[in-house]
Every structure is written in C-alpha cells, then in structure tokens.
C-alpha cells in the first residue's frame, strides 16, 4: 500500500457508509482507479458492512457513566492532589529538570503521536478490512499502542506537574498568585476532560470520540504545563526585579 493511501482511509470508510460527499468522492475515485490495495480494501469493507447490516443494533450506556462522574464531582468525592513543599535548594535542580523535560518529553510525544495515530488508522482498517494482505496489525496491537501512547503522555504529565508544583511551592515560581491560580484552574479543566474521557473509554472501549477527546486533553495538558514552566523561566530571566510581585500589586490596585 502506498504512503498516500493513508489519507484516503477515512474516505473509503465514508464511501462504504454512504456519507462521502461529491468532492472527496471524486478524489477517491481517482485514487481507486490507480490503487489495487485500496480498491481491495473498499471491496472488503463493503462486504463486511453488508453483513453487519443484518445484526441487531446495540446501544452502550455511555451517558450513564458521565452522569455518575458528574455526581461524584458534585458530592466532592474527587479531590485535587496536595502540593508538596520543596526547599529553595531544590529549585535550581527542578528548573533544570523542568527545562530538560520540556524539550525531551515534548519532542518524544510529538514524534510518538503521529506514529500512534497512523498505526491506529491502519489497525482500524485491518480489523474491518480483513483480507487486505498489506495490513497485518491486530486489534491487540492497537490497544497496546494506545496504552503505550497514553502512558507516555501520563509520564510526561507526571514529571512536568511535579517540577511545576515543587517549583511554584518553593518560591512562588516567578508567577504571581492570580496567574498561578488561573493556570491551576485550567489544568483542572483539562484534568476533568481526561477523567471524563477515560470513564467514557471504560464504558465504550472502541469509542473514537472518547479516544480522540482523551488524546486531545492529554496533549493540551502537556502543552499547558510546558507553557507554565516556560513562563516561570521567562519571568525570572526577563523580569529579575520581581515582575510577578508587580503583577500581583497591579491586579490588586
């Protein structure tokens, strides 16, 4: 299968579903004329689709999980982790660690994510497009890739969170309390999105919206933590006279 075939996979799925619009249909037809692999895939998918049409529909109770999650939050059973104090000596080490993490983790995730998504797409077709000899990825390997990618994100988040929290607790982190509160509040918004997406995936492991939502949230959290640490460094580097204190004073007056 050619590299460019990956961009037509969604269109093939939509073609089989009967939802492909005229513009992308025309593009896909051109490609199918030239590509035996994709033509075979489309044929396989159509056969599976026709067979599946005879099955009884099953509606998983995903919304129920969302209601439970919301109720747990309302009842205060979900609590934020406590902030660990650090000594001033740890600050410099943490800053260096944070800077290294920002570069190393960010780069590894950015490299990993496209690979994971490409693999997931391949596997998604392998599971539905049985008979296409070029796709040999199984459902199990997709799940493993998914868990691996999620674990990479979570590791990155854990380390970045630790660095940011210790740094902030040690000496104000260079960010004024109000800005820090804004960042904290928005990290909680993302945490909530992650928790909801994970709950959704527990109830519907194959839900594409839930998976996409989880990865969007994880990715955004890494970015926000990176931005937070970068802001701390910026405030120290560019505003050694106490910019954060000034910010606080200005916001109060």
């Amino acid at each position: 299968m050619m590299v460019e075939c990956t961009r037509y996979r969604t269109s093939i799925q939509e073609l089989v579903d009967g939802t492909l619009g005229p513009i992308r249909r025309a593009e896909l037809d051109l490609h199918l004329d030239q590509c035996d692999g994709c033509r075979a895939l489309a044929s396989d998918l159509q056969a599976i689709h026709d067979a599946a049409a005879s099955l009884e529909p099953l509606e998983p109770p995903g919304a129920v999980w969302m209601q439970i999650a919301g109720r747990l939050r309302q009842e205060g059973r979900v609590s934020a982790p406590s902030i660990v104090r650090a000594t001033p000596r740890h600050r410099a080490v943490l800053l260096a660690l944070a800077a290294a993490l920002v570069l190393a983790i960010g780069a590894s995730i950015l490299l990993l994510l496209p690979e994971f998504r490409a693999t997931r797409e391949q596997a998604g077709q392998a599971t539905t497009g049985e008979g296409n000899a070029t796709d040999d990825v199984t459902v199990q390997s997709v799940e493993a890739e998914f868990r691996l990618a999620e674990q990479h994100y979570q590791n990155a988040i854990n380390k970045l969170e630790q660095a940011a929290k210790l740094d902030q607790a040690a000496a104000g982190g260079g960010i004024d309390p109000q800005t820090a509160a804004v960042l904290q509040k928005n990290l909680q918004v993302i945490d909530q999105a992650i928790a909801e997406s994970r709950a959704a995936l527990r109830s519907e492991p194959q839900s594409a919206p839930a998976r996409d939502s989880l990865f969007d949230a994880l990715k955004r959290k890494v970015t926000l933590l990176q931005d937070t640490i970068a802001l701390m460094n910026e405030m120290r580097k560019g505003n050694p006279a106490g910019g954060a204190q000034l910010v606080e004073g200005l916001n109060k007056s």
Binding site: G172, G174, R236, P240, A241, G242, Q245, L246, L250, S253
Partner: peptide, 15 residues
C-alpha cells in the same frame, strides 16, 4: 525578595 529570589524588599509598585 521573597517572591522570586529577586526584587524590591518593599515592592516596586510602578506601572
């Protein structure tokens, strides 16, 4: 200063 290691002890409240 106590905030970020550097700054005015009294606070330089200048905009």
């Amino acid at each position: 200063n106590a905030w970020m290691g550097w700054g005015n002890r009294r606070g330089t409240n200048v905009s």
